[in-house]
């Protein structure tokens, strides 16, 4: 399929400015080069390109006002696989994730160039129905954000807004989703209590249940386990294992063990750039760049 031509004026300018001729050559260390403002190429392992992608991110740039947060990200996200995004804090992982379902539209200062395609459909096409797009995705945020309603209503929220009022269907979805998010045992006796009365970790699992309730094509998880204890984390990881092969999952994590345990592919980001992207086993055992190795083994970051 031909890439969508986006003819908005800001998309025509070339966002990546090559370093000036007169400046000294970039440092050998890629991360230092990035920090110094040089363009560095992305190391993409071959296996990634052989997969059929569900989501193609294509030369994507994003600015908050005048500050650029994402620099020319190009990465295909393989279909029905788990892809992990790792990188130091503030490198733009959440921004990238929020760009996939166009949540950044809500931030007034945001400006973008480039494109993303979901199953070939341009996400940033003006004709794209944003609501429909978001219905095809589920998202779990970095901070738990349950709605001010009962646990039950939280879980079935996306069905409710689609007009589903069949009690039997809703009950079934509610139980399945809560079980999937490892919250059923704790919540089954208080389904009709306010979700705001749950603990922080329970709230986060509730948000996971909410995200998987509508069976989205793509699941976006932004550090879903950062507020969870090891047992709940294990259950969520089990859930991700279960989802593998059925859904495409994009997960942000700071936990390297988690990335290596749960994901098929791993992308390493740094200061808004994609540095290296490949199968998880290769990224963790024999990465192309020693910078990646340093990061995933904890010697940097």
């Amino acid at each position: 399929m031909q890439p969508q031509i986006d003819n908005r004026p800001e998309n025509r300018v070339n966002a990546t400015i090559p370093p000036q001729q007169s400046t000294p050559p970039p440092p050998a260390d890629r991360l230092l080069a990035v920090a110094a403002g040089y363009e560095v190429p992305t190391e993409v392992h071959e296996q990634v390109l052989n997969e059929s992608p569900v989501l193609e991110i294509d030369r994507f740039n994003l600015w908050y006002g005048t500050k650029q947060a994402l620099h020319g990200i190009t990465m295909p996200i393989p279909d029905k696989k788990v892809t992990a995004l790792v990188g130091p804090s503030g490198c733009g992982k959440s921004t990238l994730l929020r760009s996939v379902n166009r949540l950044n539209d809500l931030v007034q200062s945001v400006r973008i160039t480039g494109d993303m395609r979901l199953n070939g459909d341009s996400i940033y096409d003006p004709r794209m129905d944003v609501i429909d797009l978001r219905k095809r995705m589920g998202m779990v945020f970095q901070k738990p954000n349950p709605f001010p309603m009962s646990i039950y209503e939280n879980v079935v929220y996306s069905l409710r807004i689609d007009g589903e009022n069949n009690r039997g269907v809703l009950d079934e979805v509610c139980e399945a989703s809560l079980r999937g998010a490892a919250l059923w045992d704790e919540a089954k006796d208080r389904l009709y209590d306010s979700a705001l009365g749950l603990s922080g970790g329970q709230q986060q699992r509730l948000c996971i249940a909410r995200a998987i309730a509508a069976e989205p094509e793509v699941l976006l998880l932004d550090e879903p386990c950062s507020a969870l204890d090891p047992i709940a984390t294990g259950k969520v990881e089990d859930l991700i294992q279960e989802l593998r092969g059925r859904y495409s999952v994009l997960i942000v994590t700071h936990n390297m063990q988690q990335a290596s345990r749960t994901s098929d592919y791993t992308a390493f980001m740094y200061l808004g750039r994609l540095i290296e992207y490949g199968p998880t086993t290769e990224i963790f055992t024999k990465p192309i760049l020693h910078e990646t190795e340093a990061y995933v083994t904890g010697r940097f970051g």
Binding site: L106, R134, K143, N145, S158, R210, A211, A214
Partner: peptide
């Protein structure tokens, strides 16, 4: 909180 609105939009609500 804005996060509640975002959560709702992310669920596909108008």
């Amino acid at each position: 909180p804005n996060s509640m609105r975002e959560g709702s939009y992310a669920c596909g609500a108008g």
